[in-house]
Amino acid sequence: MSLSMYEVSIPVLARMLGNLSNLLKKGEANAQARSIDPKVYIDSRLAPDMYPLARQVQIASDMAKGCAARLAGVEVPSWEDTESTFDELQARIAKTLDFIKGIDAAKLEGSETRTVVLKMRSGELSFSGRDYLLGFAMPNFYFHVTAAYAILRYNGVDVGKMDYLGGV
């Protein structure tokens, strides 16, 4: 039995978004316990040229909803990137989960050969659905979830590998 495009995308994205939500809960609790303004974590970044925590979460959300929509052949929802609190970031993740979980698995059938075209500042990138999922969308998604994890860890939040991986 082969794996479907749905199986290797939507449930994986949903699981990691849930893990990201749990990481943010730990970050918020840590800030409260240490009497640190939560904005310190929200605005924290690993390096001066990297995005802060809030933007990492927004991009992870964008990658998940964009991946699901493009593979399903539906319009990618456009959301403003205005989240600046833990509650707002949690709402963004919940909205993303609602969207991707609402996509019918049948919509992804045959998407491995569907052409996906991304309009970038540098021009257009064209992929097969398979190459888009495995070589672009998932690596980018994991990068931003990992960066969010690392920002929290760097700031002293008690998170570890099992928080990142979730229940295995």
Rank of each mutant, 00 (worst) to 15 (best):
A91C: 03
S122I: 13
E88H: 07
R114V: 06
D158P: 09
L24Q: 04
L17C: 07
K119C: 00
A106P: 03
A69D: 03
V116P: 01
T146Y: 01
A106K: 14
W79N: 09
A29C: 04
E80N: 11
S61M: 08
V57P: 06
T82M: 04
S128L: 04
G167F: 13
S44F: 09
D131A: 13
K25D: 15
G73W: 14
G66I: 03
G135S: 13
I93P: 07
P77I: 02
D62C: 04
K65F: 02
L23A: 10
A69R: 07
V12P: 09
A105H: 12
Y154C: 03
K25A: 14
V168M: 14
T96F: 12
S9N: 08
P48E: 11
I59C: 07
N19P: 11
I42V: 15
Y132G: 00
D158G: 04
V168R: 12
K101I: 02
I103N: 05
P11H: 11
M1Q: 13
E112Q: 13
F141M: 11
P52Q: 10
K26D: 02
Y132I: 06
E7L: 04
A94E: 14
M50H: 03
Y142H: 13
K25F: 08
L165A: 14
L13D: 01
L165G: 05
D37W: 07
F143L: 15
V145D: 07
P11Q: 05
L20M: 13
W79V: 10
C67F: 02
M120F: 14
A91E: 15
R55V: 15
Y51D: 00
A68R: 02
R153H: 09
Q90M: 09
N155S: 10
S122H: 10
Q58S: 06
R92Q: 12
D163Y: 13
S111P: 08
P38F: 06
A31E: 10
E124V: 04
E109H: 07
L89S: 12
V12S: 06
L118V: 03
T96S: 15
Y142P: 06
M50Y: 08
M5P: 00
E109I: 05
A137V: 01
S111G: 12
P11D: 06
D43Q: 13
M63C: 11
S35K: 15
T115E: 15
R55Y: 10
A33K: 13
E112F: 03
V40N: 06
V157C: 14
V157D: 05
M5N: 07
V12I: 15
D87R: 14
S9I: 02
L134R: 11
V116N: 04
A60C: 05
L118K: 00
S44T: 14
R130D: 11
L97Y: 06
K39V: 02
A106V: 13
R70M: 01
N140C: 14
Y132T: 00
G156R: 07
M1P: 15
S84N: 15
A14W: 03
M162A: 09
A69C: 08
K119F: 00
I151F: 09
M5G: 02
L89R: 06
